[in-house]
Simulated assay, not measured.
Amino acid sequence: MKALVYEGPRDVAVVDVPDARIERPTDVIVKVTSTNICGSDLHMYEGRTTMETGRTLGHENLGEVVEVGGGVDRVKAGDIVCLPFNVGCGFCANCERGFTGFCLSADSDTPGGAYGFAAMGTYAGGQAEYLRVPWADFNCLVLPEDAAEKENDYVMLADIFPTGYHATELAAVSPGESVVVYGGGPVGLMAAYSAYLRGASQVLV
């Protein structure tokens, strides 16, 4: 399959890599139809991280499930799914407490895992034709029937929108408050929108 591979600072290439495959019964394979480029990808691209050469980039992914492991119960072939940034098992102590970014089961030297990301495990990224998704029942957000026509909206659920919304959670934005968002990039705009969703009366960006 084709994938976008990191070959060094400011050096990426679309190359042939081994096909994504089921490695554990709890895996699925997703045919990637949308993926975003994150500011974190740019950090890796510019050589400001410990990203290893030969790794496939991409942690904001959406696509169609094309193969399902025998241990997967909830996700089925044909489902359109969005894949959040973090890879979590869903059952370790940290995942049980909601700290999925610090999953203890991820194949990383430190707690936490992510697709195609420096120092967060060996998981391949989704800027590729296909992606292996571990613990699919936990990591796949199955989208509704309008997923195909609203794909460009739903792919924001992989990272951009939740990150902006989480900022309003951390700030405890309440109805009637005024909110200032510093930085009007994609995440900042999602934070501003999320502040309105939480009832802010005035939002300045």
Rank of each mutant, 00 (worst) to 15 (best):
D41T: 00
A147V: 01
A93T: 07
A20M: 12
V15I: 15
T100P: 02
E151H: 05
G112C: 07
F102W: 13
G183K: 04
R55V: 15
D73A: 08
L104V: 07
L83C: 01
A114H: 06
Y123H: 15
T100L: 01
C89N: 00
A171R: 03
Y154L: 03
F85Q: 00
M44E: 15
A119Q: 14
A192H: 05
A171K: 09
L204G: 12
F99C: 00
S34F: 09
L141N: 02
P9I: 03
G90M: 01
V173N: 11
L131A: 09
R48M: 13
I80G: 04
D109L: 15
G39L: 06
Y154M: 01
G185P: 05
A13N: 14
G58I: 11
G8S: 11
L157Q: 04
A136T: 05
L189A: 03
Y123T: 12
V179H: 06
G176E: 10
Y182C: 09
L62E: 06
Q127P: 14
N61W: 01
P175W: 11
V65D: 05
L170N: 06
Y182K: 10
T168A: 06
Y193L: 07
P18E: 12
F99H: 07
D146K: 00
F91Q: 09
L42M: 13
C89R: 01
V68T: 11
N139P: 05
